[in-house]
Structures are given as C-alpha cells and as structure tokens.
Nucleic acid binder design. Structure first.
Length: 580
DNA sequence: GCCGTTTTCGGCCCGACTGTTTTCAGTCG
C-alpha cells in the first residue's frame, strides 16, 4: 500500500461517513489524516512496520486513526470501510462529484428516495421526482442531470502548465481594461501546484466602476465558454473545452483596501489559511477576505499581503510554501528560504536527440540550449532496453558519443556532456556494462519498466544504481505520470541516505506530466544534503522550455539556488561529476 | 476524531452564492 492508497481509503471513509451524516469534525479529522499520510515524505508502511514508532506521532493522527492506518497497511483493507460500503453503494458516493450536490443532499437522495445508482438518479430527475422533494427544486434537478456525466467520468485536474497558459492570458487581457486597476492570479496556480482543479483571479476596479463591467468583459473573453454563477463580488465561468476537460475559473472583484487580504485568502491553501486565522484569533483578531479586524471590527490590515501576515506576527510567506507543512515554523524562526528562480538555472542535463526518440539533432539541441542561455548541457539518449525509442546499445552509444565529441569541439560558450539515460532493469542490473558507463561524462539512471514491482525489488534496483560508481543522478525517480499512473513504491529515506552516502544526485524532471521528484520528496532529498538536478528531458528544441515547471516544483519544495546542482556555474558543477 | 504551559471537555476558519425559501440550509472554495 502506497501512501496515496492509504490516504484514498481514509478519504473514501470520510465520504461515506459524511453521507451518513456523521459529525462533520470527525469527517474532517479523517480528511486531515489522509492529507498527512499523502504528503508524508517516507512510506507510511515503513513507519507502521517499525516497532519503535506509530502513526499517531504524526500531526492530526491520534490513536483511532493510527489503528485504522495500521490495519490498512497490514491487511490492505479496513473493516469499517467495508461495512459502510455494504450500506452505501459506490455510485452514491460518486454523486458527491455532481456540482451542487453535497453530502446532505446525496444523503436525502439515497436514504429518503432510495436512489442507489447514477442511472436511477438520472431516471428520477427525468421524471421530476427530485424537484418535488423539500429542499430540492427544478434547478437542482436540472443541475443534477447536467452533472451526472461528471460523476461518471470522475473529476480531472489539469496540469499547472496547461492551466497557466490559459489563465495568464486572461489575466493579461483583463489587466488592460481601463476599468480595472489590478488583476492577479491567486489560488493553487499561484502556489504553483503541479495540478490545479480550478482557477482563481482577483481584480480591483477604479473608483465609480461597477464590478459587473469587468465581469462582462470576462464573460465575453474568447477563452470563456459560459458563465456559471455571478454575484456582486464573484463570478464563476467555465473556460473553453480543451484537452483534459473544461477548467472553471472564479473572478473576484475586491476593494483596494482589501486587496492584500483577498490575495492572502484566495491564494490558500485552505490548510495554511486555517492556521493564519487561528493565529489571528489568538491575538483577538479576525481575518477574512476583506481584511484583518480587531474586537470592535475595526480594520487593522488588508491592503497588502505583507500587512496581513504582519498582523499575525509573521513575515510574508511565499505562496509556494503555503501548505501548512512547516512554513510557519520557518517564518517564526526567520528561516524562510530564498527560493530558486528560473533565472538561476545554468545547465540542462537530460535531453534526447534523433539518435533515439528526440526530434532534433545534436547541433539543433545545442543551439536551442545556447538560445536559452544554458552554459552546459548533457545529451542523454535512451539505452537499449527502451526499444520503442530505438535505445542505444554499447556500440551505437559509443558512435553517438564520438559524434557529440566532434560537434562540441566546434562550439563555444557552452559545455556539452556525453551522457546516457540508462535503464535500471527489472532484475536490478543496469542496461549497459560498467566499462561503457565509465566512458560517459554524465549518467542518469532511471526506472522505465516494472514500476509495479514490490517495494523491496524497486528499492533493490535503485540501490544498484546508487551504488554504481558511474551513476551521477537518478532521473524521474518514481516514474509517475501525473493523472495517468502512480509512481513506483520506494523507501525514500533509505534511497536518499544511500544517495547521500554515494554522492548520487536526484532529478526533478521538469516535464509537466512528470514533475518527479515531487515537492515533498525533493524537500526530503534536500534535507539529506543531496544536490537536486532540475532537467527538462527535452525531446525537441521546444522541450527545453519546460524548465520553468521544474523550477516551480523546486520552489514548492522550498529549494534555494544553493540546493540546485544545475544552478551552479560550470566550474563548480563539474566537481560533482562522478567520472570527472 | 483530534487537541490542549489558559483546557482531558468542548471547542474545531470564514463568507459568498444558489436555490428554495420568506429567514435559511447546503454547497463551495
């Protein structure tokens, strides 16, 4: 059971308890516990297996949840969940995904109307049975019919990179309106989360302007499909259908004097804001999206985010860190990091050419890297195991390196490394012999196949790579594809300790579909003293532009320039090379 | 269900919008 699996069980349990009308705080406790497990840097299974430790040492997890987690890890299931599932069919839980339906209404549909499936729900709505029910009506019935497909297909989260292309354009266009004085991105896309569920944009308007003016402009924007809701201060729209499904966006129009409070409030995360508001309470203050208020409801802050944080005794906290994962402790002790930026990046150490599955030649990739101001790169085509991509065997690889060597002799202003992305095979051997790897300037070891192997075998494979004297870095360590497949199960603490001992680095693969290491594990690797390499894995010249998303992930991990190996100048970076 | 140098009981963040209502519950973020 991976951490995500365990968290899933707790979330499922919370959903079922909620439909059954359980104490909301009890439901919340289960969700909080799930989140703690999901964002834990080590496998929860390791913690459970350790006789010296127990899950109740984790924040928000007490005796009860610790027992549940232990049962889930040891048996793969939970009696209480199985019992509840007997009582509440899975499709009833799926009804929660219908916009406008929450646990209360679903509870009524299920318990009072006896609706147990989405088909039955659709039939009841078509017959007008639901609208007759107290608390429901014609509009609710209609929105149920419209929402059933969403419940059937599940909710989709959109890659940050995809979402930002759309929302950045909307923000730019709205900011050009004369009626508007400020427009900013808030929400999870401001926090640079790897995926976003929806978008939040804030605007302030000039004096004498009605909020409906900017809302009308948004409604008419070419990327907007329809307006879902609109009030005096808030408008919700759906953007045009694209790959990955429609994306919804909230626009909130706020007064100038509340701008900072609103930015703070709508940037989130929810967990972060709960702590901020609790700190306010402790100081006899109240924080909402309009400002910070004292006991007499007199405003004491709100124009800027800095003011809001200052009122609760904190310095401004970068949005990327606002997850209630230690940022408050760092802020209080004056240890907030100065986060790495895209401008800090000097090298790109993972890319492909036409030698395997890339679309550009060595020369083209070098030129593209120079155009992006890279001072050093590594050409790292696939090893032979990746047959689909035309992976290289020893002979072809040596010929490829010879060619790279020749080309790099004729270019200036950039260092080019002869590299390889070498597969770690299912049997825990490497795809190329040591004598070949010894000739490389740069070796990335990766898992591509057999990602579903048991954790012990995955660990053994990674350990082989880490202990090999020629391996420089572990590339996309988990092998996950966001929204498509979970990564391999890894004993991260053991992996990081071994990597630190052997001088092996860890990659944050910058491709929007990977971002692997994720934020939590990148931070854990940093804590082990491991230099992090942010790489694009470019398969084309344009593929080098994904570097920014890798930097986003690094920022969420709290990484500073000094933690990122390829933010070093070449003279210092080359000292990290194993074969150097 | 969790948590506590103010507490082991009694709290647990806050407000907008919608729909179905004549003052509010549910949902959402």
């Amino acid at each position: 059971m991976s951490n995500a699996d365990v968290a899933r069980v707790l979330v499922d349990l919370a959903d079922l308890l909620e439909i059954q009308g359980a104490n909301p705080f009890r439901v919340r406790a289960h969700r909080a516990g799930a989140r703690t497990v999901e964002t834990l840097a080590e496998p929860i299974a390791l913690l459970v297996e350790d006789p010296e430790r127990s899950p109740d040492e984790l924040p928000g997890i007490g005796k009860d949840l610790a027992e549940k987690i232990t049962s889930i890890v040891e048996t793969g299931r939970l009696d209480q969940l199985d019992e509840l599932r007997e009582q509440v069919p899975a499709e009833v839980v799926a009804m929660l995904r219908i916009p406008g339906l929450g646990p209360k209404k679903v509870g009524v549909l299920f318990k009072d109307l006896g609706i147990e499936s989405l088909d039955a729900l659709e039939a009841a709505a078509n017959e007008g049975v639901i609208a007759e029910r107290k608390g429901f009506g014609a509009k609710t019935e209609q929105s149920i019919l419209e929402g059933i497909p969403i419940a059937r297909h599940g909710s989709t989260r959109t890659w940050l990179a995809t979402a930002r292309v759309a929302v950045d354009r909307i923000v730019e266009d709205l900011s050009e309106l004369e009626s508007v004085t400020q427009v900013s991105l808030a929400g999870s896309s401001r926090r640079l989360k790897e995926t976003v569920g929806d978008l939040d944009v804030l605007a302030t308007i000039a004096e004498g302007v009605e909020s409906s003016e900017v809302m009308t402009a948004l409604a008419e924007h070419e990327l907007v499909e329809e307006v879902l809701a609109q009030g005096e201060t808030k408008q919700r729209v759906r953007l045009l259908e694209r790959e990955g499904g429609g994306l919804e966006m909230d626009l909130r129009v706020v007064p100038e004097e509340s701008y900072g409070a609103a930015m703070q409030y709508f940037t989130g995360s929810k967990e972060h804001n709960i702590v901020v508001r609790r700190r306010a309470q402790e100081r006899g203050l109240k924080v909402n999206e309009y400002g910070v208020f004292d006991e007499n409801d007199k405003p004491v802050a709100g124009r800027t985010e800095e003011d809001v944080y200052d009122s609760v005794g904190l310095p401004w906290i970068p949005p990327e860190l606002r997850e209630d994962r230690g940022e408050f402790e760092m802020a209080e002790s004056g240890k907030l990091p100065e986060l790495v930026t895209l401008a800090d990046i000097r090298g790109d150490l993972h890319m492909h050419t036409t030698a395997t599955d890339g679309t550009a030649s060595i020369e083209e990739m070098i030129a593209a890297a120079k155009a992006r101001k890279r001072k050093y790169i590594a050409i790292t085509d696939h090893s032979k195991r990746v047959t689909m991509a035309g992976g290289l065997d020893a002979k072809r690889l040596r010929a490829h390196w010879k060619q790279i060597d020749k080309i790099r002799g004729s270019v200036s202003g950039i260092e080019v490394l002869c590299g390889i992305e070498c597969d770690i095979l299912e049997d825990a051997t490497l795809d190329l012999p040591d004598d070949v790897l010894a000739e490389a300037d740069w070796v990335i070891a990766v898992l591509h196949y057999g990602l579903k192997q048991p954790r012990e075998q995955i660990d053994a494979r990674l350990m082989t790579a880490v202990q090999n004297p020629h391996v420089d870095v572990i590339g996309h360590p988990s092998g996950r594809l966001i929204g498509k497949r979970p990564g391999a199960e890894i004993s991260y603490p053991g992996l990081f300790q071994a990597a630190a001992d052997h001088g092996v680095m860890m990659e944050i693969n910058a491709h929007p579909s990977r971002l692997d290491l994720d934020d939590v594990h990148a931070a854990a690797a940093r804590d082990h003293g491991i230099p992090i390499v942010i790489s694009t894995d470019a398969h084309s010249t344009g593929g080098m532009d994904v570097m920014q998303w890798g930097v986003c992930q690094a920022r969420r991990a709290g990484l500073e320039k000094k933690h990122v190996a390829n933010a070093r100048p070449w003279s210092r970076f080359k000292k990290l090379l194993r074969n150097g």
